[in-house]
Amino acid sequence: MAGQGSTAPLRRHYPGPPGTHITIRGLVKRFAGSALYDGFDLDIPKGQIMSVFGPNGCGKSTLINMIAGLIPIDGGEILFDGKTRQDTKIGYVFQNYREALFPWMRTLDNIAYPLVLQGWSKDRVRRRLDELIASFGIGFDLHRYPYELSGGQQQTASIMRALAPEPEVVLLDEPFSALDFEMTLFIREKLQQVFMDTGTTMILVSHDIEEAVYLADQVLLLTKRPTRIAEQVLYDEPRPRTVDTLSDAGFVAVKKRTLEIFQREVRR
């Protein structure tokens, strides 16, 4: 994790350890002159869920937005299995589902939109949608417009849309924080089940420590800005994890450790 700073000459992009999916090397991002990221290196493992946790303003969302290619970077490189962003299919789930779905399209057309963009045939889209509906066990009418659905149903549709094109990576920016607790539990389970079915690499930005640990194989803890890696805490409890997991000794220990690091970084 030795950042060289923005002034260092660009090094050759070196690969991460085996099983690495996304490599971030020498990442630089400045906001109004001050550096948010300055020579940031990170390996994100393939087929795992990584939660990102850190103090307010440390740039958690900025990090996944840079990975998604939504915010330009000022230096460094982000590669996916050695490929650039252009050659990588990414799914993204926003916190604010209300402003993420297109209200002028029926919910089903929203979910199909990324497939239409990729030029899939009508038949193929139809088949993929049927697959998604079956695997999510959808019990509500997808022919309605998004604004006719509940918040939880809209966020479920957002997740289906992100997963529809079978992306290599799914980025989730606080996907539960606009939902009530009942819906959060429901969608959390759906997400775990989808992950167990597909093994898609996922990066989850979270402000809820319990949720961050519960879903993750690894919790990435960030420092205050300029942002560095405070620590990467592993959690290898096999899935499916259940409500019982939350009171499990292993879970409690990891959560405690994560909280300690977080508090240390906040006070620093």
């Binding site: 998604a68 290619g69 299919k89 993204y92 926003f94 604010n96 993420a100 779905l101």
Partner: peptide, 26 residues
């Protein structure tokens, strides 16, 4: 226009033209 809807379209791989046609106009 809601910036997030434009971002959503872009992350799904929409070209500038598709963002214009499918999001901005609406």
């Amino acid at each position: 226009a809601r910036k997030q809807r434009i971002m959503a379209a872009r992350v799904m791989g929409a070209s500038r033209w598709r963002v214009f046609r499918d999001v901005l106009i609406w």
